[in-house]
Amino acid sequence: MHQAQARTKMPGKDSYMSCTHISELIPLYISRDLDESETEAVGQHLLSCEPCRSLESQYREADSWLKSLSEVEPETPANGELRARVNHQLDTVETKRIGWKTVVLAGAIAAALLITSAFALTMYKGTDQINHDAGSVAIIRQEPVPQTLSPALPKVSRRRLTVRLASHSSVSRKYAMPPFKAVEIADVKRSPETATHTPMRIEIQTSDPNIRIIWLTDNGGIE
């Protein structure tokens, strides 16, 4: 900043603006970014202050120089490069979205096939036998029965956990519908009553409250 400090009175005000203050306003003065009173004060100051006029000139030259440089277009990418990059990103996002949907769809189809197959298998086997693979039924009563009933009682396969109601085929078909499930035969075998090879009458409540199985073991208990 130059040493000779001129002072300019603000129009309509009692305050004065020094060269230091004026020099701070010049960057905005050149682009008319000052309010009216400031613009007038700077203009008056510049009329009488050579150093500040020189400073203003430097700002204007720098401003023109910057604008002239800005007229030169920046280096641009090869034609289509930006579009290629944008489209690649969009394609990637789309592929991911499609991939996710495909996985979900495939999973749903597989699950549907699995459920259908399991249901069909259950229906098929249910026509002549009942599978018992889970413990969703409860033995609600087991008690000895008279010896005279034993020859006609159904057979039980302990290994396969299957109740075979050969002599009650009509009942079997009726009850072999889901959610008819399992009976834990091992519990029957381990019970004190079956250990004595006494014919048993066992009532089994399935998971369907409307279905109850009346099961009579033969003289030898559980096979």
């Binding site: 960057p27 905005l28 430097q58 700002y59 720098a62 401003d63 910057l66």
Partner: peptide, 20 residues
Amino acid sequence: VRSQISSARSKLREFHLTHA
């Protein structure tokens, strides 16, 4: 914004004097 522009122009004036 005016303050930022003023500061930027001051720096550019010096740069212009020195480099351009």
